[in-house]
């Protein structure tokens, strides 16, 4: 039993070593590079030269940065609200005792979540592309779709709607995660509560507003915050579909970091941008812990 003292640490070491090696070291590197003027070609000389906070000053004058920040805010808020809302609805629908084939439904709903972003991206391009897409082609011959206002072709090329299209696709892809989290929450509400309410004569609406929603609030909150954190870093589907275009209209912050680093080769500036992205993430994380604290205190 004397050995016990170092066993717990030993068990953690492999995980920690990997995380530090692949996450912390690079982060430190990003921080240093953010203070340099450095391009991809400077990697060879190990180099670039230190320019202090110049990159950061540049960020504040960079209209593409503000543009990407704005896109991120739109993309994240719509995606998160949509995912959590529909996740809740679907979870609620699936909770009903009369619903058959539950696991079939759940399995199919998971599809967009488990499919690779490349496949998802291509599939949606083939649906939305102005000249080759399925939807524009179908809409041009279908009065029904025209009536719904779906007979447009500029899904991916109209700068004022492309970011919303991306958000809807992200809702489509991320809903299942919320559905799983909410379902777990719903399952934690004892059936006896509902039965008691029913005996007291509460209708379905009242049961929803008086029991389900209040008891689900913590789950919904956690779900909201987790999804927010995840969504700020999502850019692969956008990269595949539009690479941020047209004219940066769908370029979110994380994609802007990627494009600056790898398409433009501006490593120094991209690293500074990535530190800003990290700060945004940190802000959300702090919010997450504050809310968790607050909840714990209220429960205690």
């Amino acid at each position: 039993m004397k050995k016990r003292k170092w066993i717990p640490i030993l068990l953690i070491v492999p995980a920690l070593a990997l995380l530090i090696f692949v996450m912390m070291f690079p982060l430190g590197w990003a921080f240093v590079t953010g203070l340099k003027s450095m391009t991809l070609l400077d990697l060879m000389t190990g180099g670039g030269r230190f320019t202090g906070l110049k990159n950061y000053f540049k960020i504040f004058r960079d209209r593409l940065f503000y543009n990407s920040l704005r896109n991120s805010l739109i993309f994240v808020s719509i995606s998160v609200i949509g995912q959590v809302f529909f996740g809740f609805l679907i979870a609620l629908a699936l909770k009903n005792k009369f619903v058959r084939f539950k696991s079939f439904f759940r399995g199919i709903f998971l599809l967009p979540w488990i499919a690779s972003s490349v496949i998802v991206g291509y599939s949606w391009i083939y649906i939305l592309d102005a000249n080759l897409g399925f939807l524009p082609t179908l809409a041009s011959v279908s009065p029904f779709l025209q009536m719904l206002g779906l007979n447009r072709k500029d899904w991916l090329t109209n700068p004022s709607i492309v970011i919303y299209v991306m958000s809807v696709i992200n809702i489509w892809k991320g809903m299942p995660f919320s559905m799983l989290m909410q379902s777990a929450g719903l399952q934690s509400i004892p059936d006896t509560l509902y039965e008691a309410a029913r005996v007291d004569g509460a209708g379905a609406w009242q049961r929803l507003t008086k029991i389900t929603i209040p008891l689900m609030t913590p789950f919904i909150l956690i779900n909201l915050i987790m999804t927010t954190m995840i969504t700020f870093n999502v850019y692969d589907v956008i990269l595949v579909m539009t690479s941020g275009g047209p004219n940066h209209a769908s370029e979110v912050l994380s994609l802007y970091v990627y494009n600056t680093g790898f398409t433009m080769g501006e490593l120094g500036y991209a690293s500074a941008l990535s530190i800003i992205l990290l700060l945004v993430n940190l802000l959300v994380t702090i919010l997450y812990f504050m809310i968790l604290r607050y909840r714990e205190r209220r429960l205690a």
Partner: peptide
Amino acid sequence: TKPEDVLSPKNGEVYDQAFLNGK
């Protein structure tokens, strides 16, 4: 012409092919 028809989201080949196809 319309903006959405010429602002092809990906590379030049999409525009070229659209012209060949008769767009």
